[in-house]
Computed example of a mutant assay.
Amino acid sequence: MHRPGILGNGLKRLASAPRSRRSFATATDADVESARRYCLKQLQTSDYDAHLIHRFIPPPVQDTYAALRALNLELVRLPELVSNPTIGVMRMKFWQESIDKTFAGQPPREPICILLHRGLQQLELRAGSSSTAKSIKFWVSRLIRTRERHMDNRPFATLASLEDYAEHTYSTIMYATLASMPLRSMHVDHLASHIGKACGIVAVLRGIPILAAPAQPVRSPSGLDTPSRTQAILLPLDIMAEEGVKEEEVFRQGPNAPGLQDAIFKVATRANDHLITAREMLKRLKAGQDPGHEFEHQGEGEHQYFEEENNDTARDIRRGFGALLEAVPAAQWLLSLEKANFDPFAVKSSGWRLPWGVWQALSKERI
Rank of each mutant, 00 (worst) to 15 (best):
S171F: 03
I144G: 04
R147A: 11
S141K: 13
E163N: 12
Y175C: 06
M151A: 08
H168W: 09
E148W: 01
T146N: 12
D152V: 11
E167V: 08
A157P: 01
E148L: 10
A157M: 05
A166R: 02
Y175S: 04
Y175I: 05
L162V: 10
P155L: 06
A157N: 08
V140D: 00
L143M: 14
E167W: 04
R142M: 10
H168R: 15
D152G: 05
N153R: 09
I173F: 01
M174Q: 05
Y175M: 11
A157T: 09
S171C: 04
S171P: 01
S171G: 07
D152K: 14
T172E: 07
A160V: 09
Y165F: 15
D152S: 14
M174P: 00
R142I: 03
S141N: 14
T146D: 03
L162C: 10
A157F: 01
N153A: 09
R149N: 13
S161L: 05
Y165W: 12
E167S: 11
R147Q: 14
Y175R: 11
E163L: 06
L159S: 11
S171H: 02
S141C: 07
N153W: 10
R145K: 15
N153D: 14
A160E: 13
A166I: 03
L159C: 12
T158L: 07
E167D: 12
T169C: 08
D152W: 13
L162H: 04
S141Y: 04
N153L: 10
